[in-house]
């Protein structure tokens, strides 16, 4: 059963890559110019969710790397976030300390600034994105099981 039309399918195909690029931009430069992993994850997750809604669970699973690996993404995200948060304790700084410290020089590539807060945002992105995809994959596999008899 497919509810979508040729129009929605075309739009869904067209917006996929630009939205992922937007998510990447959000990730490295968020609303107060540091990265924003959470909204990047939500944006990227939404566009993949649109693929699932428009094409049904089968086609996205065939086109993308299998959603079965998505829990690993989320898991890796949590581990990375915790590691970034707790690592400063090892050399005696408070948790969540950011390096380089305010006022110290930061490595730039173009407009992109490298500091450890970015790493934390990447971790949050992985967690949010991985979680959304895992849930979608779970729902998709449930639907495939329940429709197993036909087609």
């Amino acid at each position: 059963m497919r509810l979508s039309t040729i129009m929605t399918e075309m739009v869904a195909r067209v917006i996929l890559l630009p939205t992922l690029v937007t998510a990447l931009a959000l990730l490295v430069k968020g609303y107060t110019s540091a990265g924003d992993g959470f909204s990047a994850g939500v944006v990227a997750g939404t566009v993949v969710a649109i693929q699932f809604i428009v094409f049904g669970p089968r086609e996205p699973i065939a086109r993308f790397p299998s959603p079965r690996h998505a829990p690993l993404l989320a898991f890796g995200g949590v581990l990375l976030a915790l590691a970034v948060a707790f690592a400063p304790l090892l050399w005696g700084d408070p948790v969540l300390t950011q390096y380089p410290r305010p006022g110290e020089p930061v490595v730039h590539i173009g407009a992109l600034a490298f500091h450890t807060a970015l790493l934390f945002d990447v971790a949050v992105f992985l967690l949010v994105f991985g979680f959304i995809i895992s849930v979608l994959g779970g729902i998709g596999s449930f639907e495939r099981h329940s429709q197993g008899g036909e087609s």
Partner: peptide
């Protein structure tokens, strides 16, 4: 006590 992120008192989250 510890203030997360090394922020000043009243700004950071205090543990």
């Amino acid at each position: 006590e510890m203030i997360a992120g090394g922020w000043g008192p009243g700004i950071g989250i205090r543990l």
